[in-house]
């Protein structure tokens, strides 16, 4: 469940009265419309805006939004093994997103139990979630998160080119992660040279590396930041994890991935160091 301060109510179906002019069938139809819209958004890879849900699905009465949203989530989870999650705002940190994800899954377990949810609202991680989705930071958009374990998806969903690009993206994300979630542009390219990838030199598999990095940024996997150099006209650029990466690459999986490069006896230490150095703004 996505907690959103903009909702007029976050309560679940049991304690909301349907507006008189809407029947249960109307609601069911809207639920399927939202599932369809969500699946379409995954086909086109564009975040789904709350405004669009309002216009195309809910239409008149936004009070039914929570009911329709929850029911659609159930179908998406059960039938399609995906769920809608709020698209993180620019500048969200790896830490806060991971905490809100943990909280979300806790709340799934407690669904329908209003008392427990209320109780959890006083616990400390709720505070960081509020920060992520409060009005100021809310993006009012959603993207689909895949709930099928990665080991099952391997080799089935991607074609070869996607798979190679995916590998390139993971390498860059790992690099950024291990460096406190901010890496200067030139360091990224220098690092990629170790893999035989050079800026401005056509690579056998990837051709133009820079083009891919621009695309990763456009798709929201990376975030490019401008920093002025003090006492100078010039600026430097650095990269951070983008909103989509925060949703699609759970920290735990990434740590396991990095761990794989180290000897068994080193692994524990590496994970500790990585967690210490990760991007906390």
């Amino acid at each position: 469940m996505i907690i959103d301060d903009n909702l007029e109510s976050t309560s679940t179906q049991s304690n909301i009265k349907l507006p008189v002019n809407l029947t249960q069938e109307d609601i069911e139809k809207k639920v399927l419309d939202l599932v369809r819209l969500a699946i379409s958004s995954s086909v086109t890879d564009i975040p789904l805006k709350r405004e669009e849900i309002k216009k195309k699905v809910i239409k008149d009465n936004m009070r039914i939004f929570p009911i329709v949203f929850e029911e659609a989530q159930k179908i998406l989870r059960d039938t399609y093994c995906m769920e809608l999650v709020e698209y993180p705002a620019r500048g969200s940190t790896i830490l806060s997103i991971n905490q809100s994800n943990i909280l979300n899954s806790q709340q799934q377990l407690q669904q329908g139990d209003a008392q427990t949810i209320q109780a959890s609202q006083t616990n400390s991680s709720q505070v960081s979630l509020k920060k992520v989705s409060s009005k100021k930071y809310s993006t009012n958009s959603y993207i689909l998160r895949n709930l099928i374990p990665g080991n099952l998806r391997k080799g089935l969903i991607f074609n070869k080119e996607d798979y190679q690009l995916h590998g390139l993206l993971i390498i860059i994300l790992c690099l950024i992660y291990a460096n406190g979630n901010r890496v200067k542009e030139e360091i990224i390219y220098k690092y990629l040279e170790k893999f035989g990838l050079y800026k401005n030199i056509k690579h056998e598999t990837f051709e133009d590396v820079e083009k891919h990095i621009i695309q990763f940024t456009q798709k929201g996997y990376l975030e490019k930041e401008k920093t002025p150099i003090p006492n100078s006209e010039e600026v430097t650029y650095s990269y951070k994890w983008g909103p989509r990466a925060l949703v699609e690459f759970p920290e735990k999986n990434l740590l396991n991935f990095i761990k794989g490069f180290y000897e068994k006896e080193e692994q524990e230490q590496i994970v500790k160091e990585l967690i210490r150095s990760r991007g906390i703004n």
Binding site: S42, T79, Y80, N146, I148, L152, I157, D162
Partner: peptide
């Protein structure tokens, strides 16, 4: 794993 059969197929085919 059996529970993922249909959704995995749909996702793979969609791609």
């Amino acid at each position: 794993n059996r529970n993922y059969l249909n959704s995995l197929f749909i996702q793979a085919f969609m791609a």
